[in-house]
Nucleic acid binder design. Sequence first.
DNA 1: AGCACGCCGACT
DNA 2: GTCGGCGTGCTC
Length: 638
Amino acid sequence: MDESPAIAAVCIDQPLPQLDRLFDYLVPEGMDVRPGCRVRVRFGRRKVAGFVIAVKPSTDFAGKLLWISDLVSPQPVVTEEIAVLARAVADRYAGTMSDVLRLAVPERRVRVEAEAPAEVLPVAAPSSDHWKRYIAGEAFLRALHDTKSPRAVWTAVPGEDWPARFAEAAAATAAAGRGAVLVVPDQTDLDRLDAALEAVLGPDRHVVLSAQAGPTKRYRAFLKAARGDVRIVAGTRAAAFAPVPNLGLVAIWDDGDGSHVDRHAPYPHAREVLLTRAGLAKAACLVGAHARTPQAQLLVETRWAVSMTAPRGEIRSATPRIVPVGDESDLERDPSGGTARLPTVAWEAARAALAKDRPVLVQVPRRGYVPAVSCQRCRTRAACPNCSGPLRLLGPRRDPVCGWCGTVARDFRCAECGSNRVRAVVIGAERTVEELAQAFPDTPVVESTGVNRLESAPAGAAVVVATPGVEPAAAEGYGAVLLLDTWALLTRAELTASEEALRRWMNAVALARPDGTAVVVADGGLAVVQALMRWDPAWFAARELEERTELGFPPVMKFAALTGPNGEPEKLATDLPHDLGAEPIGPIPVDEHTERLLLRVRRRDGAALAATLAKATAERANAKADPVRVQIDPREIA
DNA sequence: AGCACGCCGACT
DNA sequence: GTCGGCGTGCTC
């Protein structure tokens, strides 16, 4: 009889790049160590936590193995699929597997593990009727049900009940015995998706995975997925790693939303995690949104996925009338149209909707009262006399207040011309509410911004002033949607300014009734406004992608940002192998001691760049060199 | 990260 | 003779 103990390959919970590999340990006789479970092991002098990634009969390690110190729990929490995924995501982002697993596996809650597993409930095949509006939509659902793995970039028409469509896709997948992972940007979208899943699947067929619910509920949902008690997981970005057995479908809604980027190292984007996962697990993939990102468009153009859109006629009948209005002189407009805040066309659209007892949505880019002011006379930005921060107004006839240090600038003097008067640069949601309340005295005017987000629009005639991303849905749709101060979105310096503007506008206009009106206060000659008017985000994304390709920007070119003490990022860059062809851009100073250098390579060299940077980082850490932080797909250029 | 090993200057 | 500087390398 063979008495030799089993060997466990353990991923140590340590973020150090030079320790980003598996370490073998002996499994003590009788210890119930399974792949994916949590253990504690001696590592160097200390005892550390780790995940057992594999259990095997032998080791390649020539030295003397230590025994696993403790089995934390026999409950497997890292499935083989997730282990492979975590490794792939770490490699893609030049990060460590343990960092990725920290995102993927929620904190343990002992009592939750003791709960009895539930019975897996069957899921009936859903109706695919609503998918018929889209070219190849029904075929997509049928393919899911036939356990094939179709991949689609889906452009939803305005008013589309996308949570229901996601639920149907998940149901078609689960009815065929496979699992689905659905990722949405935020809790509000998740609540909607949760309700749609409940309606389509029936109770207890899915779980919701988000940090919002708190660690106990989160771990319970996670374990239900890991144990196969449910086949369908819906959640926010970290749910992209949900351990669903026999994965058949991954789906992401509105992949352009910045919330999909994790804020912990190595900062993976949920879309990239899911695409990687779909590739590894040979699962189907659905990238859905009203708008379309250049990254999604690239999936279409490389034929990795098909473009799933509605026919023109279907789009026309679902889309409100969209009218552009040139933004001539926003703050000095003739107020005879009702309000200085609204151009006449916008005001009339609002009035017509209210007359029909329908709500009106007004999107403004900034919250607050007057979030930025400048000198009345010379228009120089008004800066805090104390810290040079931006001054803002918190209410009518109030002194300017600094947005950074809170200093009240009671005796404001322009640094350039000495004038003591200020004028608004941007008008915030709060002041917009104030002005519209005067313009529509018999109508409730409410605000939905940031933390004070409104769950749903009031029924009947009402004006809702909202900032992008927190527009409440209206039961029957808005009679009018007004997009104000669009210049504030369009003049941002970010590479993604137009794309982001279109995404925000489309998400707002999608809340309008098909017989309603949307007014965009912007130059109708701009491509981004044209894309909105024609409801053709694919056209705009293709254009955007082409432009970025010409300029050598992402996603066709791959970027990494190196941040570290002056000189070090450059040193690291020059030490890279020349055949990688990494082109340095910069460096630019971050502060007195720190600089940031961008590296650019061809897309197909992205993996090699990440691998090389990970190796270089590990070597530097070993040599105790000053740390240089590496970030793949940095936000400032993504 | 910690912590060992290791090879050269000034101290009990 | 030896205490200790921190360079180099390893951690199953």
